[in-house]
């Protein structure tokens, strides 16, 4: 069974003359260990797709199942719990809480889940060390570089051991070096830890790290490409595809 099962996924904003179809009958499946990049021109529905997959928004038509659970049939609280336990989010602007330290920020989902404080701390330290922040455990966001902040955000996304990580332009705010490190980390999450990672990005170089790229245009999937292992070739191919689609 697929981890993500999206059928006829449609999202329309507004009504009547002002209605905008952001997503138009999209079919999508994602399996554990998949590292999927979602690409497309501005306004093609990338972010909308991510929101619907993460249960942040409800579709106008169609259905999403995560790990066999149909989101449409679940209450707001149940979807919230699903997000908390099974999905990790990584955002473009990191969205760390400025008043909390790295450990505390990374621990948030477990704290919200009411888990044992000592266990949470141990786990957060472990994860932060894994993402290379072993020395910055007690720093606050304003004491960290952008790349470091995004690592904290990734640690936060992973702390619940989610089956799915959704990343919305995770490198959009980072320099080239930090971008590479972050996307490498996400790839590791998919490959070494067996999680599914769905990442929205504009950057063909970043998308080339994925093993599957979904191209969206006007709310529809226009290409669903599986990539070769060699990244440099992929980047060129992705750029080419983007140009073709545009």
């Amino acid at each position: 069974m697929s981890l993500i099962q999206a059928e006829n996924l449609t999202k329309v904003y507004g009504t009547g003359n002002t209605a905008v179809v952001a997503l138009d009958h999209v079919q999508l499946t994602v399996n554990p260990g998949d590292f999927v990049a979602v690409m497309g021109p501005s306004g093609c529905g990338k972010s909308t797709l991510l929101h619907l997959l993460g249960g942040l928004d409800r579709p106008t038509e169609g259905a999403v199942s995560i790990d066999g659970q149909a989101l449409a049939a679940m209450s707001d609280d149940a979807v919230t719990e699903l997000r908390r336990r099974k999905i990790g989010f990584v955002f473009q602007f990191f969205n760390l809480i400025p008043i909390l330290t790295s450990i505390e920020n990374a621990s948030l989902p477990l704290l919200l889940d009411g888990k044992n404080a000592a266990d949470i701390k141990q786990k957060a330290v472990e994860l932060l060390t894994k993402v290379g922040l072993g020395q910055r455990l007690d720093s606050r966001p304003n004491q960290l570089s952008a790349g470091q902040q995004q690592r904290v955000a990734i640690a936060r996304a992973l702390i619940t051991e989610p089956i799915l990580v959704l990343a919305d332009e995770p490198t959009g705010n980072l320099d080239t070096r930090s971008s590479d490190e972050i996307v490498d980390l996400l790839k590791q999450v998919a490959k070494a830890w067996g999680r599914a990672v769905v990442m929205v990005t504009h950057d063909p170089r970043i998308a080339a790290y994925a093993d599957r790229i979904i191209f969206l245009k006007d709310g529809k999937i226009v290409n669903d490409a599986h990539l070769e292992a060699k990244r440099t070739d992929n980047a060129e191919m992705v750029s080419h595809m983007m140009r073709t689609i545009a």
Binding site: D77, T80, R84, I97, T160
Partner: peptide
Amino acid sequence: RNDIGMLRAVGASRKT
């Protein structure tokens, strides 16, 4: 709003 949205995204319920 942003912090709260993030908390909601990572699984904080309305009650929380």
